[in-house]
Amino acid sequence: MAAMYSEFADGDWSSLRSARMSRQRLVGEPFASPVDAVERLTAVQAQEYVDAGWALSQRSEGTPTASEIEALVARGEILRTHVLRPTWHFVRPSDVRWMLELTGPRIVRTMASAWRANGLDDAHERAQVNDAVGEVLDGGEHLTRKQLAERLEARGIDTTKRITFITLAAELDRVAISGAPQGKQQTFAAFDDRVPASDPLDHDEAVARLAERYLRGHGPATPHDLAWWGGLTVADARRGYEAAGAVPYELEGLTYYEIDGLDTPSPSDSGSSTSETGGLGSHLLPPYDEYLISYKNRQAVDASEDYTREPIEGLFFWGLAVDDGRVVGGWKWSRPTRKADPASATLTLLTDTTSAVRDRFAAQAERFSRYLGTPVELTMEAPR
């Protein structure tokens, strides 16, 4: 695992873990709602839809359910689109336009080979396809990818093996965005129907806004962290911190930035005191959770020097078991094959743990059960 995050370095990262977990409301007073969570975090990686909803639920008052979060997406209070990096994110409607204007062109450039392979590198072809997508979605349509492909084929647009890239291009070019889900299917709707109009920002203004928002939701962080998370150059990240009035400080040989005077809730601000939860508590975070994915340097969470067994292959793509802010294992869950059966979850621990820690993970599994709206049967595998 160490190589996946960084080479392990001796040092005291406890203050950084505490600040970040508090800022992201994994400890301390939770956000009032998932909408507030997305607002403060600015963008939440969401390629795994149900797991991404769990990331919002954990940070919100009352552990909102998956169906409640889906209802927010259906109403357009939270949107899901490709922004920052070429992957899905949950974003607030008021933030989509300026963020895509800033990061969209860079995402397009990074995917040059994909556009060439699908004929979307040709400006005339791309415009023709986008026009057709806009026409199909006109009038308030919310269509699944399959439905959209059928409508485009009827207009003479070849979608064979390239509908995924057609919808991605339409998102990046601000033609389409997520609509109301149909069952388990993502839909697409007209961009302007779901995203309010707003005055454009110039590049430097947008970078400064993104830098400030990132630190408020994720800080403290280095310029390289922001560059990774926001799809920016490191030079832009440094300029963004400066324009946002961020203050640098040194920790274990690295320069971190923070918004001066920013009020960060302390872990003891929540209903569960640190004595009840054990430091920063224990969490079952979903794959690609912002606590991990939003930083390029992740050595602060690395517990590999304490591992008593070999790291799990591909651990970074698992859900991560975090105790006191450090990754101590991985977990996976699966839906039941029969509706009457419970969902199953397996937690593989990589460190020796106390019964109190295991009890806290069991409590998190119960919380996950409430989120899913179905019982969850948890199996814990001890280090071997």
Results as ranks from 00 to 15, higher is better:
residue 288 Y to L: 12
residue 19 A to D: 10
residue 129 V to N: 01
residue 21 M to S: 11
residue 369 S to R: 00
residue 321 A to P: 07
residue 19 A to L: 04
residue 17 R to A: 07
residue 345 A to N: 03
residue 174 R to E: 11
residue 86 P to D: 07
residue 88 W to Y: 10
residue 179 G to R: 00
residue 249 Y to I: 07
residue 174 R to A: 11
residue 322 V to I: 08
residue 63 T to N: 15
residue 258 E to W: 08
residue 239 R to I: 05
residue 96 V to Y: 05
residue 384 R to A: 14
residue 10 D to R: 04
residue 37 A to N: 05
residue 114 A to S: 15
residue 119 G to A: 04
residue 61 E to D: 15
residue 41 L to H: 02
residue 99 M to E: 05
residue 245 G to S: 03
residue 332 K to D: 15
residue 85 R to A: 09
residue 126 R to M: 13
residue 305 E to G: 00
residue 261 G to I: 04
residue 115 W to T: 01
residue 186 Q to S: 12
residue 330 G to D: 05
residue 48 E to K: 09
residue 287 P to H: 06
residue 93 P to E: 03
residue 310 E to K: 13
residue 10 D to H: 12
residue 257 Y to G: 00
residue 51 D to L: 12
residue 285 L to P: 00
residue 278 G to V: 02
residue 152 L to Y: 01
residue 372 L to I: 04
residue 381 E to Y: 08
residue 315 L to C: 12
residue 72 L to A: 11
residue 344 S to H: 14
residue 185 Q to M: 14
residue 98 W to F: 08
residue 83 V to I: 10
residue 158 D to L: 08
residue 341 D to S: 00
residue 359 D to C: 10
residue 11 G to Q: 03
residue 292 L to P: 02
residue 37 A to H: 01
residue 214 Y to E: 04
residue 337 T to A: 10
residue 276 E to D: 14
residue 59 R to H: 03
residue 341 D to V: 01
residue 357 V to L: 02
residue 47 Q to D: 08
residue 174 R to C: 13
residue 128 Q to E: 15
